[in-house]
Structure formats: structure tokens, C-alpha cells
Design a protein around this nucleic acid. Structure first.
Lengths: 154, 154
DNA sequence: CTTACTGCAAACACTTTGCAAAGTA
DNA sequence: TACTTTGCAAAGTGTTTGCAGTAAG
């Protein structure tokens, strides 16, 4: 079983930055750690978490830095993001990609095995030459609870 | 083969509005017609189109009216929208729902048969009690052209 | 020391809301 | 007339950008 909250091993970050002549900064380390420690983290949520961690006196990375850093980390392959529908995208630590399923009624998010779309991906590849990126968007629908609720509360 | 630009039969609109004690206005007719006449229309694109149709002197519906109207038309089942990723959602006339596939590289949009996800939908229903709304989000990936371009222009 | 990075503030894109005037039934 | 809609203007999110000062290598 995977470690719940990996204390974020910073090594890959330092390496990949160095490989491109980029610099290791505390902001970059902190943003990466925040993404790793949160689930389905929006940029806003990440910024908030960083402010909490910094405390009332400490300085947290600026919002614009959070955005810029997320973009960078994604280019480096350390994080990825998914659009859950409307609103802000959510970021994940790179590890095991997964597919999201969101309830349009209550917003509940489930993670499912990306293999769910394997056959669809194969058909798209064969018929359109299109290679599916399973993780980048979430599937939308209605969860059992919301479906049961129909008719119960008009 | 389907009619290219159906001249938008307004009957269903009038009926459904009346059925709910709502009113038929020219704005509502115009917004519906614009959605029917455009493909993958964002609210902004719809507003622009309406401005063009109104001409330099005529009055086009206000942006806020466009948003309110799209929401209404969707409740009435006359249009539906899809999130293509980041940015504004796109609206479609209700008719035949379809699934969108977007290239992350060039933004090209393909429409595919929703049946593509039938087996995935069945598994989600069986395993999670989740009913998939196939049209609400687009699948993301890379189209053949963008894939071929990799390595050609670094 | 050189050049990348950050914080700040302002601008942007997309939507929503309150309210008085206008329009439909 | 009674009640729904609209337009306008302003406020709300979510995100990006220009730039001068700060800091990593």
C-alpha cells in the first residue's frame, strides 16, 4: 500500500530543475509539497494551505507564484491537473494517474481506474489517430445518492 | 443527412415556456437561434453573433441576458453545454447529443459517437451506482497532426 | 556577479447579481 | 394590471502579466 502523505522527496525536483538550468527555491519546494499533501487541490486551495503553513508572520508564496510554479511543475512532470467541470482545475502529485468521476449534483469526486477507458482509447486511436489523455478531464454524471434524492426533495 | 442550419423551429420554445408560466421574448428566440446556428458556441461567441445580427444600430441582448437565457434554455431541455477544458463552456442545440474529443495541442474538436463510452458507463453504473452523463465533459488528448508534429518542430 | 525568480499591483477573462425600467400575457 | 424579463452597472471568481527588487548558483 502506498504511503498516505509521502513527506515529499525533494530530490526529483532539484534534479529536474538543475537539468534545465533552473533554480531550486523554497517556493517551488513548498508548492510541490502542498500539492502532494492535498487531494484535488485547486490553485486557490494550495495558496491557502501555504498561507496556513507560513503562519501569521511568515511569508507565503504569492498567488501568481503559485500559478507560475504549478505550470512549471507540470512541465517537469511532477504534477498534473484535471478539469472537474466548471471552476478551477485541480492538481495532483504525479505518481499514479487516475480518472475522476464527478457528480453534477453534489460535486462528490470519485477516483476510478483509468483502465475504464482503455477500450474507448483504443477505438479513438484506431479510428481517429487520437491518443487519449485519460486523466485530463473528469467524467460527469450523477452519483447514487443524488439519483436517489430525486423525487424525495422536489 | 441532417439539415446544415435548421431555421430553428421556435414552436418547442414557446410551448415549454408557456407550460411554466414563462414568457416568450425576442431575446430568448434569438439566443436559441444563435446556438442552433453555431457550433461549439461559447456564451461570448453567442453574444458576438447576436450583435452582428442586430447590426450597428439594432440592440442585441445584453451579455447577462445571454447567460441567463442559456441557463433557462438548458433547464427547458433545448440546449446543453459541455466543458472542453479550461475556458468557457460551449453550447449546443439539444437534438442529438454527442461526445467531444479535444486536442490539447491545437484545440481541434471532434465529435464522436457517445456509444464510445457505453461500456464505461455500464461499469460505472454497476460498480458505483453512478450514472454517466456522456456529453457534459470532453475527452482530452492529442490529435494525429499534433502527435506527428512532435520531433518535427522542437 | 549573472540571470532566474518572486512579489506586487494592475489588467484580464468569464460570470453573476441587484435593481429600476420595459415588455409580455 | 400583474408579474416576468431585460439592460445596466457593479461586484465576483479565477488567472495572467509587467516590472523592479531579491536571491540562487
Amino acid at each position: 500500500m502506498p504511503t498516505p502523505h509521502p513527506p515529499h522527496d525533494a530530490a526529483p525536483l532539484a534534479e529536474r530543475l538543475r537539468a534545465q538550468g533552473l533554480r531550486l527555491t523554497s517556493q517551488r519546494q513548498r508548492v510541490l509539497a502542498a500539492v502532494a499533501g492535498l487531494e484535488h487541490a485547486t490553485p486557490e486551495a494550495i495558496a491557502t494551505r501555504l498561507r496556513e503553513e507560513a503562519g501569521p508572520d511568515g511569508a507565503a508564496p504569492d498567488t501568481s507564484t503559485v500559478y507560475r510554479t504549478l505550470e512549471l511543475l507540470e512541465r517537469l512532470g511532477l504534477v498534473w491537473h484535471t478539469h472537474l467541470g466548471k471552476g478551477a482545475p485541480v492538481y495532483h502529485a504525479a505518481e499514479h494517474p487516475h480518472l475522476h468521476v464527478v457528480c453534477a449534483g453534489c460535486g462528490a469526486i470519485s477516483s476510478v481506474d483509468p483502465a475504464l477507458l482503455d477500450s474507448a482509447a483504443e477505438r479513438l486511436a484506431a479510428e481517429l489517430g487520437f491518443s487519449l489523455d485519460v486523466g485530463h478531464v473528469a467524467l460527469s454524471g450523477t452519483c447514487r445518492a443524488c439519483r436517489d434524492r430525486v423525487g424525495t426533495e422536489p
